[in-house]
Design a protein around this nucleic acid. Structure first.
Lengths: 192, 192
DNA sequence: CAAAAACTAAAAAAACCTTTATAGTTTTTT
DNA sequence: AAAAAACTATAAAGGTTTTTTTAGTTTTTG
């Protein structure tokens, strides 16, 4: 059900998508058709809404990730693909511009945000580390792999690219995961 | 031989590496032990030196790239690896901070710079395009591949990472090329 | 009760001025 | 002939005040 809190958060996200963090609370109430009084009866501040959004977003990713990691049916490569493609439904928070704005205007929530974000990628690092030790993954620099993946995934999130190239975000991230895992060469004979 | 012009450019690069674009011409002459008069007899302005540096840097990359593309001994994958790893000896220009500063303080040379830079990656795109048509490369989004590669290579150039992880730049770029080509999985049985 | 509108305190942005730094030139010295 | 030093015009940085914006509150209206 669309509770009032949910509607507020949805509107908040929508405004973020359009204007970054620079929308006003008046913009927000106008969008969802409630009064400011109602808004402030549900949340105490703009920062609080942001914080709740961050929490919800990462809870979703964490949940997906944990499910994948604990799934004994999956092979390590499958888990890696799963973790890489586990993006949240609210993709705003992955946008670089939003990153910068949160960092600047909401340093308190930024700190929390950055910590969780790094943590999420840390799961991938561990997975790759294990993979290398098991001999499943080539002996490459694990941090380099993670950094590459991180940047690739993030770069897709800055709107421009995937709009301009008319490739869906889900598709793009999936392709990225495949490239990281299998490379771009198509047939075995082209390898090595 | 170390002509005076070369010494100036070397000093210019050294200053850039240390202070970005914010070094003074006095810093520069002090570093290489010449007078400002001599400096300005060789170059008409700071911007001109930058421009020459840009030209030289990309001429070097272009040269390497063309050699690779025209080498009939090389397979397409080998060419791709070659093009990706064809970084110039002066790596400053690949640094993101320098990017931003040139963009801001030298918009004229930035324009030129950006154009050549994109052009260079365009060569990789064409190569990949051909590869896909030949069936050597999997049917992925070619622009996505190029963007991924570009960002990965660039990310390694921002000092921090490869200093902190004590991996040489050449090594890092080589690993990136390998990952793009072959992926991270070590043995064939782990693939697919 | 909740929307609409009016309000306020605080902060961000804009406008303005002052000072400093520096690219490029000229003069002096070696 | 080139370095060193002094110089200037200009632009960037820094500081200050004014104006505008806006988060959050309070009052009014339906």
């Amino acid at each position: 059900m669309a509770t009032i809190k949910n509607r507020i958060i949805e509107g908040f996200v929508k405004e973020m998508e359009i204007k970054g963090m620079k929308f006003t609370m008046d913009d927000l109430v106008r969008r969802i058709g409630i009064s400011k009084r109602t808004l402030y009866e549900n949340f105490s501040s703009k920062a609080e809404i942001l914080e709740v959004l961050i929490d919800e977003t990462f809870a979703e990713v964490d949940d997906k990730t944990q499910r994948i990691l604990q799934d004994t049916e999956l092979s390590t490569p499958q888990k890696i693909k799963g973790v890489i493609t586990a993006v949240p439904s609210h993709r705003v928070l992955y946008d670089k511009n939003i990153f910068e704005q949160i960092k600047r205007f909401y340093p308190d929530q930024w700190e929390k945000f950055a910590e969780i974000f790094d943590n999420d990628w840390e799961e991938l690092r561990v997975l790759i580390h294990q993979g290398i030790q098991e001999g499943i993954i080539a002996n490459l620099d694990e941090k380099l792999i993670v950094k590459m993946t991180m940047e690739a995934v993030q770069s897709v999130h800055d709107q421009e690219f995937y709009i301009k190239n008319n490739i869906s975000l889900t598709d793009a991230v999936s392709q990225i995961a495949d490239i990281i895992l299998f490379g771009i060469l198509s047939t075995e004979k082209n390898r090595g």
